[in-house]
Write a protein that binds this DNA or RNA. Structure first.
Lengths: 200, 200
DNA sequence: CTAGAATGTTTACGATGCTTACATTAGACC
DNA sequence: GGTCTAATGTAAGCATCGTAAACATTCTAG
């Protein structure tokens, strides 16, 4: 059907590996994500994936890159182009919920020493970063865009991890959404002893 | 010398294991942290650690717990009891720098599916959380303490991870400190289209 | 149709986590 | 002091893993 040009013996082992890896990850967590298991699931010998991925980490990076793309979709689905703090908040909630719905994937995307040489990965995270910067620029036009984008990403990213690690209660999605919303509002409304902080 | 009561065959394998594990972690990263390597370094048979730790994860949890304690010390050293935003910021910088100086440890503390049954670990993270809440209560007495503490921790935690993962440049400590400071200031000074956000 | 390149397979090695059965030693009791 | 028991460490072994090398198969170009 599609032009991925049906391949030799298997069909398209390269893609099948990422797919199998993603499935294993979602089904049984990161511990279950072994190259051998991926090969088994793809119906192929244990050494076959090495024709397409230099080592285990290369495969993991490919999975992470896919994860970034899916995260981007998810954020866009929450709101295509937020321009108010409320809309920004809904994107933040989507970010955290993505992390909670796919914890193993999220950990692979962010919780591992990352492969800085993987182009796919670099491009994917640059896209997320870029997307965030645009949003922040719209929502906080008066702020230092760079610093504000960093702060926003960090805030949301931190909320995701703290929930993921059980540091914050994540038993129900709505509790999470409320906490994320409250945290963002608290920060934005913070009045420092009634005044403003000295400029950066 | 000290009263740790010299033990049986080894001396104090339990403690020696955490120490060896921490060393391996700092020297060669998480990948090098195997139970066998720990046993080797402690000069003991590969199965010996199992007398003290049910499995690999139990040892890792012990290392993480130690990490929490060291992080707490580090934060206290930055400022014993911060009560201004500037002092809070210096604690935040210390948090991020701890993560960058001991990346493997930090990842083990926060980047792994955590063992929720480990008392040491629970107590240690509760302490950090409690400490943060006190600070925030002093610095932002008018804010919703709960939400504000959450937001602050998340912001700092997120900054740590984004630097750790190369999403933000962490080449020099001062660049990191500047960015952390700028991010916090940007958020606290954010004027949402000139106004405030609707209550919680 | 043939040759070479691309793709998978077999087999093997060393390392790991963990279990079971066994050996040693420390310390309590008499 | 001598003996018993439980705490501690050892030996040996299993299943799994990542990865490499040699080999086989199949696609594609000429």
């Amino acid at each position: 059907m599609s032009p991925p040009k049906a391949a030799y013996h298997h069909g398209d082992l390269r893609a099948a590996c990422v797919r199998a890896a993603m499935e294993l990850l979602e089904e049984s967590g990161e511990a279950a994500l072994s190259l051998r298991a991926v090969a088994r699931r793809a119906g192929v010998s244990p050494a076959a994936p090495y024709r397409h991925y230099a080592d285990r980490e290369a495969l993991v990076s490919a999975v992470a890159a896919l994860g970034y793309r899916e995260l981007a979709e998810r954020l866009a689905a929450a709101h295509p182009s937020p321009s108010t703090p409320e809309q920004l908040t809904s994107v933040a909630v989507a970010y955290v919920q993505f992390a909670l719905e796919r914890p193993a994937l999220f950990r692979i995307m962010f919780g591992e020493p990352c492969d800085r040489d993987n182009d796919e990965r670099i491009a994917a995270t640059a896209a997320v970063s870029q997307y965030l910067r645009e949003i922040v620029g719209r929502v906080f036009p008066e702020a230092d865009a760079e610093a504000m984008a960093t702060a926003t990403w960090a805030l949301v990213h931190g909320l995701a991890f703290l929930h993921l690690d059980g540091k914050l209660d994540a038993s129900t999605p709505s509790a999470v959404a409320d906490r994320v919303t409250a945290a963002i509002h608290a920060l934005l409304n913070a009045t420092i002893h009634g005044g403003h902080l000295a400029g950066n």
